[in-house]
Amino acid sequence: MISDTYRDGRQRKGIRREHAISTARISDVPVIDITPFRTGTDPASVAAAVDRAATHVGFMQIVGHGIPTSATAALSEAMDAFFGLPLEEKLATRPSSSSINRGYSARKTERLSHSLGVYSPDDLFEAFNFGSQAADYPMLDLPTELYAANLWPGGVPVPGLTEWFTHAGSLARTMTEIFALALDLPRDYFRAYQHHSIDVLRLNNYQVPPDDTVLEPGQVGMGAHTDFGIVTILWADAVRGLQILDDEGAWHDVVPAEGALLINLGDLLARWTNDRWISTMHRVLAPVDDDGRLYRRRSAAYFHDGDHDAVIRALPGTGEARYEPTTVAEHLAQKLAGSRGLRLNTSAEREASRLLGTGRQ
């Protein structure tokens, strides 16, 4: 039987029994104002709120993040410019190998659930990726496949993308300071793991062409998965699509609050905390409403994954380790070989069990 309370006794909201998809209220994913942390007026209260969200939900909405609305507007304009290009121009920015997480990914070329070792049909989104490059760290001998050169398209206002990338990177590092405080660690604890962090901004476009609306059974905009790294900063249109899976097997809609950014934890942070904190399972529905009408949804996900050579193991005092130590590079390679290389990942049993146990993908 599904319990209607969290482990700490709080009442659940919007959960229907028998694994039905429920419409969660915004309050199910807490909105947290991080201004008191950024200004130093009350960092402890922010850390406590983040700890509660990280423990029970794995997602949170952040306001007071300091990213100007002008930067978000420029990001939106640049996204529209890229996705509005003719297909052949977008395809010209494809990487030479699926293992290179840069450039354009066409619709039906990725399967995010394969990163968990779980089969699903091709995902319906298209995307454009760019991120940190080896050239950004000339004094280091970094693997060029992980720190690949960016593939910029013509006719797209690149400054609008790079400005938001810079702002999101600063916010991601602020969040790791909040995480450290919430975990009773020195505020700069995670800094040693992010000197040359593998950071990627993925622009996603969910828009099914009008002549291609027949979906395979189980086909969605983006398959169920957990994010791979430390933390994800997500901007998204305020429309239905993103869903998160709770620990009782119910899917919940999550729509961003005005001015808020969605923050969710990745696998590496869950491993660090030995599953005290949650790397939440999520997916994106196909952009077709209940009446079969098509709509568009965009998102921009900034993945902050840490240094490629950083070793991730359970923090001291968190009990017997549930995961073997791994490097950031090893973990990302296994995950990307699934989602982009379409090879079922055999190293994500604990994550996969949460999805398979629900009977719903």
Rank of each mutant, 00 (worst) to 15 (best):
V118S: 04
D122Y: 11
A73D: 13
P68V: 07
A134C: 06
T55R: 06
S132P: 07
S99A: 10
S96R: 15
A81L: 08
A135D: 08
L91N: 12
L75P: 01
T72W: 11
R107I: 10
F128N: 00
S76C: 10
H65G: 01
M79P: 06
K108S: 10
T93W: 06
S105A: 14
R107A: 15
L124F: 02
H56I: 06
V50N: 03
F59I: 05
G103V: 01
H56V: 05
S120M: 01
Y104S: 05
A106M: 13
S113R: 00
D80A: 08
F83E: 03
S120I: 00
P68T: 07
P68L: 02
A92E: 06
F125L: 12
S97L: 05
S76N: 15
R111D: 05
A106T: 10
A54S: 12
G131F: 12
E88H: 14
R107Y: 09
T69C: 13
P121F: 06
G117K: 01
I62A: 13
R107N: 14
E88W: 06
E126L: 00
V57F: 04
R102T: 14
A47D: 04
G64K: 07
L91R: 14
A81G: 06
Q133H: 12
T109D: 07
S115E: 04
Q61P: 07
Y104I: 13
S120L: 02
Q61W: 10
S115W: 00
N101F: 15
F83N: 02
R52Y: 12
Q61S: 09
A134S: 15
H65F: 08
M79Y: 04
M79L: 08
I100F: 15
H56C: 05
H65S: 01
S99M: 13
I62G: 12
A48K: 14
E89G: 15
G64L: 06
P95R: 07
P95I: 04
R111V: 15
T55L: 05
S70R: 14
I62L: 12
Q133W: 06
L91M: 13
H56K: 08
A53L: 03
R107D: 15
Y104C: 04
F130M: 11
D123C: 07
F59R: 02
S99W: 07
M60K: 03
M60Q: 02
T93G: 00
L112S: 08
D136A: 15
T72G: 10
S115I: 04
V50D: 02
M79W: 03
R52C: 11
R107F: 09
P138K: 09
A106Y: 06
V46S: 10
E89I: 09
R111M: 14
